[in-house]
Nucleic acid binder design. Sequence first.
DNA 1: AGGGTGACGATCA
DNA 2: ATGATCGCCACCC
Length: 108
Amino acid sequence: MFASMLGVVRRIPRGKVSTYGDIAYAAGFPGRARQVAWALHSSHGLPWHRVVGAGGKLLMPGEYGFEQRLRLEAEGVRFAGLRVRMELHRHAWFRRKGARKTVRRKRR
DNA sequence: AGGGTGACGATCA
DNA sequence: ATGATCGCCACCC
């Protein structure tokens, strides 16, 4: 399980990000976002900074969170306050039918 | 075996 | 928007 998840993380292109939930889903384990976190825990040499929480939030506390932000900005990822602009950088593994309401349309 | 933890996430107050 | 709750499940006592 961890192997597949890590494989998915490895395929996130530069300048893009993915969420724990999406990674779990793409790896074939929907709903196991926490295990993705564990997988990253027990590994190294991966683009871990391209993994963010739902909604683009940086979840890592302290120094690492800071470093993650620097790394992402260095790749051209734009932020909106404390969150990554998912509508610009979320990596689409493949189209999910419902397409979720990920792209929340603005009210008017 | 049993209980607590967590780099999660959706839902509800 | 924020905080609590619950569902999730591999790990670590």
